[in-house]
Design a binder for these strands. Structure first.
Lengths: 153, 153
DNA sequence: CTTGACCTTGCATCCGAGTTCAAGGCCTAC
DNA sequence: GTAGGCCTTGAACTCGGATGCAAGGTCAAG
């Protein structure tokens, strides 16, 4: 398939596809006789992975670290290293989720205060909600998600 | 307190403090006779909030949207708008948490495969783990966190 | 055989979020 | 009173992650 079809399927501009190829996040595809890039299904799968990973907040460099998993090159040597990388990424993700949960709880508290009190009174809540004293407990995911659903309907 | 003390307490460089003032994330403080910035406790509290929010992945623009909560200016008029903003932020956060959870699950699957199989065999797992077919279920937070703990010990 | 949509390359530009620099003023200790 | 450390400003610079542009090649329809 040509570059625009690939780009459309994954939902990125063609300029981004070329950029990812340039920085090594997407392998160079074969070319047609006239020099056009010609992609297969594997490219779509990989590009989708890269695109998703970017949306999760991983940097291009971090994604490049993860890609050898599917590269196949230098496979045996890379095995232990790749496992360690995955563990690190998972720890990072867990940390991010935890902090996001805390932040959501803070916002939830502010909202509750605003909701319950007269406008004029609520405005001077003085940031104390932002600097929680004592231990912070992780918000149960379902609680956060429920808040989101309320917001949408 | 002077700028370097404020910056040290919150853990950002002074250049960042001036930058936040410039783009409106931190109010301009009073000045000493000689023109030095002179901050009070409120500034420290607000700067801490901004710094935390940045670390959660909110953009400066998003943070600027949230700040009126504590601004006090134009209070009554802003009340409903601020509640809506909080709901939106919570929805965004919930979405981020959900996607991060999905991504963590994918990594978890890849890791399990690598762990269980011979290196040479695992290397050709062909990305199918990245494009889950069917519905994706949110990873329970505790599961993700457990993975992180395993990684650390 | 032309029109219009698509493709190629390299290079320049943009954006957010800071960081660094230059040129100079303040302040405290010695 | 001068050295060294902190402060001021505005402007320029950095960096990651793209995006856009110019100048030209390809290709299918009419």
């Amino acid at each position: 398939m040509r570059i625009s079809e690939l780009a459309d399927r994954v939902g990125v501009p063609t300029s981004t596809v070329r950029y990812y190829e340039r920085i090594g996040l997407l392998g160079a595809p074969i070319r047609t006789g006239s020099g056009y890039r010609d992609y297969g299904e594997d490219s779509a799968t990989q590009l989708l992975f890269v695109h998703r990973a970017r949306r999760m907040g991983l940097s291009c460099e971090q994604i490049a670290d993860l890609l050898p998993i599917w590269g196949g090159a230098n496979c045996t040597a890379a095995h232990a290293r790749v496992i360690r990388l995955i563990d690190e990424k998972q720890a990072e993700i867990a940390q991010r989720i935890k902090e996001l949960g805390e932040f959501a709880r803070q916002l939830h508290d502010v909202r509750a205060t605003l909701d319950a009190s007269a406008p004029t009174e609520a405005c001077r809540t003085d940031l104390s909600c932002c600097v929680p004293s004592g231990d912070i407990h992780v918000v149960p995911l379902e609680l956060v998600t429920r808040g989101a659903n309320q917001a949408r309907h």
